[in-house]
Write a protein that binds this DNA or RNA. Sequence first.
DNA 1: ACATATTTGGGTAATTGGGGGC
DNA 2: GTTGTCCCAATTACCCAAATAT
Lengths: 104, 104
Amino acid sequence: MDTGDRLLTPGEVAALFRVDPKTVTRWAAAGRIGSIRTPGGHRRFRESEVRALLEGEGELEELRDEQQPPSTANRPRNEGPGAHPGPSRSAGHHSPSPGNVNMR
Amino acid sequence: MDTGDRLLTPGEVAALFRVDPKTVTRWAAAGRIGSIRTPGGHRRFRESEVRALLEGEGELEELRDEQQPPSTANRPRNEGPGAHPGPSRSAGHHSPSPGNVNMR
DNA sequence: ACATATTTGGGTAATTGGGGGC
DNA sequence: GTTGTCCCAATTACCCAAATAT
């Protein structure tokens, strides 16, 4: 498994997150994302970390146990039965990511 | 691996649905739509998912590579009795959402 | 050495998030 | 039950110029 040795430029990370390169720089400055500095002062980011971040922190993941109201029930979100080849994130959750404490 | 879908900002999704960005946030909070959070806390939405929702719920079987057990060919389509398609979009009695461009 | 594109820095406006109430 | 609007705080986007990378 590649540990993501590939380094991404701020522009790449910005395009991945759909944000401004400046924002990515802010993340690095705030310590929200690991960054490697070039001797010239520019920043580089690990692709593995970036991918892990946008892997899908969506609250919607395995939420499929919806209740069914007797009358007005319409949950057109049903996946066919069978095996889910999807990469379950049930293995090794806590990653050595920086402390993600951002809540008021 | 990459689904190749771009990420949309809450404002974009809101404009697509013609709702307030706050409503989109509520959808994400309620788990009705997948969301990716930026390290800063903002949400980004997958364009493919949004388009799928906009297309109408008719999720046609465009995917033919989905293995299905040859035994149970049932379709757990909980449409529910009676007719109750999505909520009524009775939008049109107020000025366009000002929270899109030019606010303060 | 050149030039071009990208990144960096600071500053200001716009958007977004969360809560509350209608 | 949902959606839209109010507040404030945080994050993000666009403006500039200079430095760095290729």
